[in-house]
Amino acid sequence: MKKYLIATTFLAGIAAAGVALADDDDCNVAMSNWQPREAVKAMAEAQGWSVRRIKTDDGCYEIDGRDAQGREIEVKVDPGTLAIVEIEYEDDDDDDDDDDYGKSRKNAAPAGSVAPPDNGLFTPGSKPVVKQ
């Protein structure tokens, strides 16, 4: 058992990725299927974000800017479909995304300032309160 654990840790070190969970790239879209940057910008503005910079990272588009509430955000977007892969808030202080599966306490969505989805479960207009 111990041997197995050591081997796993070793492999994880080599791969520099959370073996069981992390992929090498967050997006995997052929270059010919990428949407233009203007489309990304339009999508961001449609969400109410202000865009400072659009770059590519881990095979995705990454938007740096601010959300509608003025919080700094880093959003990974699928380059083909422009679906949101991941939203990080700048007050989240870890930059690598390999070992923070369970350490992203500061990456919490702002409960209480955002309305829950309209899925029929919640009272319309109510706001969740979270303590942890």
């Binding site: 500061k106 479960l121 969740p128 942890q132």
Partner: peptide, 24 residues
Amino acid sequence: AEISGITGASVGAGRQLKITLDLS
């Protein structure tokens, strides 16, 4: 979109997550 506005941080081992929601 299913979890927009109802997403928070992961929960550490041995810790507690307490959420208060206005449910139908």
